[in-house]
Design a binder for these strands. Structure first.
Lengths: 264, 264
DNA sequence: CGCCTATTTGACCTTTCTCAATAGATGTGG
DNA sequence: CCACATCTATTGAGAAAGGTCAAATAGGCG
């Protein structure tokens, strides 16, 4: 993951769900931010806090973690460009724990900024709404996965989703994604035990779908992974610019040019 | 469940998350609505639809159901006063199936109404935001339950949640809640097979926690059910009016006067 | 009464968990 | 650069939870 100006990943993310004008992007470019670095498993937000700014993730991964019910279940993960606590602009109380999954770089952006750009551009206001709705839809989709898929499918789906979301902001162009998190982290996302997570990963390796070494996951058979996961990116509520939906999806799901849409 | 004017349950629901003035309530009372009745498992909204009004549930239960991944996993259920598709005011596209769980009565209220009251009352606008956030938090909580609890706990938690949510809008004052849905419906919520759901319910009965007959669940040991479920209503993001948090919770969790807060 | 749907039961199988131990990697201070 | 401490990954074995299939039973309703 390479560094750009603070706003660029966020702008990419917004444009993945809504169309923006160049004026809008210019406004985003004026995003004020205090940049902080976190080490793996550092706590970025804690339950009960009152936030006056939002966290725009610049590099790495973060997740919302719930500690209440025994296991530290992870409810969502975030990639660069995401704003995990965007909802605090509506009600500032934080009700879960935001943690870094691996080293992470975060820009703290005052709520005021989001209010200002919403007031200045109808289009940006709408884009922010869509971003929030996309997170809602993602959460619902993950709930479906947890409720109705076995663990192998869950893990495969997770890796597909991370890959596609990274691509949306210009990362993971090859089929390699950074995996600075542990297998236990993956287990906490998928709702399975760490031991079982390990067996699942070995299974994915044995099936020739991916490798996981040196803190990097290399997907060696993307169409196979997509098929195993039953992955379709509809739920990400992506804008489909100038493209028929199927064509757009196949583009996202392609491994770099070799795979026809029929692979779905 | 008894019928009132269309807006009353909705007003109760809003007041469970935010304080409203009498003016605000008067505005709600002018809610225009087209009332429709649905039979069990009827489809109220279907994926791909574009909504121009919201569904305010008046009587019965509804749920969002996802058909994509094999089993028809249910992602959330709603009680009277809830507005399952409130988010369509931000983006009208419906992306799941809204179904009646048992006979249900729904008021269709134009988006325009919600926009109008938001424009007229800052307080109401905020209340609507909080309502949306509460749904988000509920979803996240349910995801934690699915990811980290075994099926007995899931079912117990579900019944606790339904009971408390009914109480918020003045229903289920005794420890009886209507259960017009099938055990298969419960299974689709808890992410388990219908056969297993049946065994779980029998388990709850055998433990003396509840009865389920004549389309009614009678909770015979509320503190026991709460303890088994590890249920705490924090995630519902309820307003705690004039009460210390613990006191408020114990009030909600009480069976009608006999149970001290220490039961938690 | 008879049909249809929902609930219940039993048997068997698969998935997943837990516990416990081993091996590998990473990082730190000497 | 090594030795040690620590965290992470891996493996095995036994047990628990949950799924599937099939059949029997019980309600509800025309």
């Amino acid at each position: 993951m390479q560094t750009g100006f603070a706003f660029t990943r966020f702008a990419d993310r917004l444009m993945s769900v809504a169309e923006l004008s160049t004026d809008d992007v210019d406004m985003l470019a004026r995003m004020p931010s205090a940049i902080r670095h976190f080490a793996s498993h550092d706590e970025i937000r804690r339950p009960g806090e009152y936030a006056s700014e939002c966290c725009v993730l610049l590099q790495g991964y973060t997740c919302w973690k719930d500690d209440d019910h025994s296991a530290g279940q992870i409810t969502s993960i975030h990639v660069p460009g995401d704003v995990p606590d965007l909802y605090t602009t509506l009600s500032p109380r934080v009700d879960a724990r935001l943690c870094a999954l691996g080293p992470a770089v975060v820009a703290f952006v005052p709520h005021r900024f989001f209010r200002d750009i919403s007031a200045m551009s109808e289009r940006l206001a709408h884009a922010l709404s869509l971003l929030a709705l996309a997170e809602f839809a993602s959460l619902r989709n993950w709930l479906v996965i947890l409720g109705s898929c076995e663990s192998l499918t869950r893990a495969a789906h997770l890796i597909c989703e991370i890959t596609v979301r990274l691509r949306l902001v210009g990362l993971a162009r090859d089929n390699r994604i950074p995996s600075p998190f542990t297998q236990s982290d993956l287990a906490a996302i998928c709702g399975i035990s760490p031991v079982h997570a390990n067996r699942i990963i070995q299974d994915l390796r044995r099936k020739g779908l991916l490798q996981w070494q040196a803190r990097t996951i290399t997907i060696t058979n993307w169409p196979g992974l997509v098929r195993l996961a039953g992955f379709t990116p509809d739920y990400l509520r992506l804008r489909q610019p100038h493209l028929h939906q199927e064509a757009h999806h196949s583009e996202l799901l392609m491994t770099g040019g070799e795979m026809p849409a029929s692979a779905l």
